[in-house]
Design a protein around this nucleic acid. Structure first.
Lengths: 217, 217
DNA sequence: CCGTTGAAGTTACCGCTGTCAACATCGCCT
DNA sequence: AGGCGATGTTGACAGCGGTAACTTCAACGG
């Protein structure tokens, strides 16, 4: 619609769009430059004028996927209505987890690609980023956990590993349900087990030290 | 050593051995039939006399990987010395988790392959199996959780989703540390965060129902 | 002792992939 | 007008999985 400014149209965007489309329900391994070019009516190698190699295109798709996931979680967070600060903070944490899983299940191809080429290691969250510190799932998780501390639900000394614990649990659940042995669960079973997982996390976060013999090897 | 009974030796086993070797630290995507044949001094296509296609070889490698992981966890379980039944059961659960992660980190390629071709969906655990019900990680996890119930640490009504919760948490931790954004953690950080995760699970399992507003959507 | 048979391995080919190099085209700017 | 640089095309190479037809060789029966 916007006219074709150059030779044959605005590739790059068309390539990225098509790539997202292909990956969404085929996973990263379904992304083939030649087949993409074929589908766009352009000759193979045309893509190399816009991306150094396949990996470069994958990276752009990963950014899109990440943005989509952040968007989905944001929408979920916006729907939280609890008034009581503690309930609200706990609910927000659960919404993040559920949103994460929802994205993983509904856009499983993009989710899988995301974890073969994760855009930015979260260690450098606030470094010199073009990315606001809360605009990736890990940042949102950390914000929610900080809220839990501020609100008094989570003891500050239990805050330290909580981010990894939450992320690991939810991520593992997603992976096992997509490519792992838990695919094939009915949506109802899935929702129930996810609820159980989130409740376990909610309760387990304040882990105190009731395990003296832990330090080993 | 055992002589070469046929044309050129006992392929198949040599193929599987080499495949395990390649996959161990290259992941499933590093497994190429042709390169394997080349390394064994045999012509490509020779493998097709022993495996229908690449996938068939992958499946055999997956079985080996699974056996290796089970073996590792068994060895860890054999080292548990706690006398008190409750402590012992809890310790055994943690050993399973730590063994799972240890295998994932030290044999990451095999671990990754395992979850692109998991041998048997655990739903049919005791069906008509050639596999004893406790001889896969999921079975061992379930046995440990049953122990926790028998010993009184875990309420029977909290038993139901506990398997998925444990598996998801530990699996997610492993994945995030291998291919995900948590690679690059130092071993010490890793051990500390894993300990936190396991403690959170240990505490969170008895999740009771202190979240009335959970039923939604 | 010889010949047949069937398993194991080989050569040749096909289509697919990513990637490099050389060539063609077209808009814009001097 | 002319050229330059961005864009796209054609052609080639290597590597991959997979199929088909051919060859080798050990074992077994007559």
């Amino acid at each position: 619609m916007t006219s074709s400014p150059y030779h044959h149209g605005n590739l790059r965007e068309a390539l990225v769009d098509a790539a997202v489309d292909v990956v969404r329900d085929g996973g990263p391994e379904a992304l083939a430059l030649r087949e993409l070019a074929r589908r766009l009516g352009v000759s193979h190698n045309a893509a190399y004028r816009h991306f150094a190699d396949r990996e470069a295109l994958v990276d752009v798709v990963a950014e899109r996927a990440l943005a989509g996931m952040v968007d989905l979680v944001h929408r979920r967070l916006a729907g939280v209505t609890e008034a009581d600060p503690v309930s609200r903070a706990r609910r927000r944490l659960m919404e993040i987890g559920e949103g994460y899983v929802e994205f993983a299940l509904t856009q499983s191809g993009l989710f899988r690609l995301l974890f073969t080429a994760y855009p930015e290691p979260p260690a450098s969250k606030g470094a010199d980023g073009t990315l606001a510190p809360g605009d990736d799932p890990y940042g949102m998780l950390n914000a929610a956990l900080d809220d839990l501390v501020a609100v008094g639900f989570l003891a500050p000394e239990d805050r330290v590993g909580a981010d990894v614990t939450c992320w690991a649990a939810v991520h593992g659940f997603a992976v096992l349900n997509i490519e792992g042995p838990l695919r094939g669960l009915s949506p109802a079973e899935r929702q129930a087990t996810l609820a159980g997982l989130l409740m376990a996390i909610d309760r387990g976060l304040g882990a105190g030290g009731d395990w003296p013999a832990l330090a080993r090897s």
